[in-house]
Write a protein that binds this DNA or RNA. Structure first.
Lengths: 287, 287
DNA sequence: CCACATCCATGCGCGGGAAGCATAGCTGCT
DNA sequence: AGCAGCTATGCTTCCCGCGCATGGATGTGG
């Protein structure tokens, strides 16, 4: 003598469709089946819920209130299942080029310790939002602040900029360089990686700006084109630390503004542990 | 492939009992049945919810969150059913002696018009709370403010007090009397009705207080004992208007403080339309 | 070290009940 | 009055959830 979810679904379908027959079609059952389900619901609740005749149908006040509750219950169940399923999925952290640098390992360690049942996947996604916009990741660390209103971002920390030069470049042996020097001697094109804004030509004042640019779309292309001597690049310090390459030398740029690293998450989290993870990132970075 | 309430109940029972076997006993099913229900739930959610071996059982994080949601859902369903069933019940208004007087009929009319599907039962209950404390009524109109913390009360309006005298009483023909006069001439006992405090001896200053009292427990006893000349009484004006009796005369008492009528309802309403009804009462009284 | 106690999982057969089909009953319309 | 469209009911079938019996795993005590 229990009310079940099928009963609530039946009531909702009938209320929305306006007739039992139409609701039955929507639920992919026959009309007699749904009619009986409704009758059974009324019998179990002990109250008439739907005023119906062959030409008329509407809810009684009791039916209307049960419908309201029922919809809420069904929605809650959906949310509960989504929550539960999402919880068993790994939390996917997206990034474009190497970010977090030194802090990455401590972060992973402390997360694994505090949330042993929520595995973390760190995935490279070569697009502006590192997979956030497409739902391929749950959180992301970015070098640009995306415009998408469905993505919340916050500044994490800043890094000095470095130049990436072919190892036979005249400035490759220097301990530091200035922006103006980079565009002078061998007039190499600048390797620009549009998805991460750290190496853009905007760093230079218009007159000194590099005359040519070459677009790349991931770190490997970027390193290769520099190692072969066909371009030079600008990046953040962390990139140099984690992406060594035999043919590329990194030299700090003393007059370039620092680059900001952002932490980004969806406005409506796709993983139930998103908030906790973002807090863990903040702590790892500040500590 | 749907998760049903039986699954949530199974999970809750298992979590509470600590073992599948014990939970099965509690649910009055056999262990294999419950074991399969749990397995089915896990299959449908797609996540392992309970870590179990022959000697150990506890919830996975996913199981714990689903359990939390599940309990809330089951509780919500219970509340929804209670709400729906209560809605089809009449709203019971309790009173002890005649209160609301002139406003009663307009109140009933306006309620029937604004809530045609919520019938109103007006029932006399001869006890302090007019049936509220026992759950026999949903709202009540009282002449005393009950101490019970589970009952909320508010003052509605005040009424002048009248004396109820046998028709052969020397003061019966007067247009008004004073308290002192009532205890002088024929030293009749005061008919006291403890459940409604309007006629208590406390109205008199100690020295003039009636020497004897007689207890009654409803309006009819009260009227009869006065009509037979064995007592006199004090009541609120409304009582006189609605309870005529051939052997009883009502005379306004000019120096008695006014009596207050209270509207009372349970702190946790027993009928979903309680709030609206109380508002309707306020409006009927003020208008 | 083995028999035992205890718990969960699985195979099997059965019974209840939900669904489909066919049809009857009702009601507003043309 | 006949018709169109809706809901209710009788009948049958079939699925699935249950109980029973049993197997497998694991910690325990003689």
């Amino acid at each position: 003598m229990d009310v079940e979810l099928r009963h609530l679904k039946a009531l909702a379908a009938i209320a929305e469709a306006g007739t039992v027959t139409a609701a039955a079609a929507r639920l992919h059952v026959t009309q007699p089946a749904l009619s009986r389900t409704l009758a059974q619901l009324e019998a179990r609740v002990g109250v008439r819920l739907v005023d119906r005749s062959s030409r008329h149908l509407d809810l009684t006040p009791a039916g209307a209130t049960l419908l309201g509750h029922g919809r809420a219950i069904l929605a809650h169940l959906d949310a509960a299942l989504a929550d539960t399923r999402a919880l068993s999925r790994p939390l996917r952290l997206g990034y474009t080029c190497a970010v977090l640098g030194q802090q990455t390992v401590p972060l992973l360690r402390s997360w694994r310790r505090s949330h042993p049942h929520v595995p973390l996947e760190v995935v490279r996604q070569d697009n502006h939002t590192a997979g956030l916009a497409t739902g391929d990741t749950d959180v992301a660390v970015l070098r640009t602040r995306p415009r998408d209103p469905r993505i919340r971002t916050e500044a994490l920390y800043t890094e000095d900029r470095i130049a990436a030069l072919p190892d036979d470049h005249p400035l490759a042996g220097r301990t530091r360089v200035r922006l103006a020097e980079l565009t002078e001697n061998p007039r190499l094109p600048l390797a620009v990686w549009p998805e991460t804004g750290t190496g853009s030509p905007d760093l230079w004042p218009p007159v000194q700006r590099p005359s040519r640019t070459v677009e790349v779309h991931n770190v490997d292309e970027w390193l290769n084109i520099i190692a072969t001597g066909d371009a030079f690049g600008i990046a953040a310090a962390g990139t140099g630390e984690s992406h060594g390459h035999p043919g590329v030398r990194f030299v700090p740029v003393e007059d370039a503004p620092a680059a900001t690293v952002y932490l980004a998450g969806p406005a409506h989290p796709t993983h139930p542990r998103t908030e906790e993870f973002m807090a863990a990132v903040r702590e790892a970075v500040s500590g």
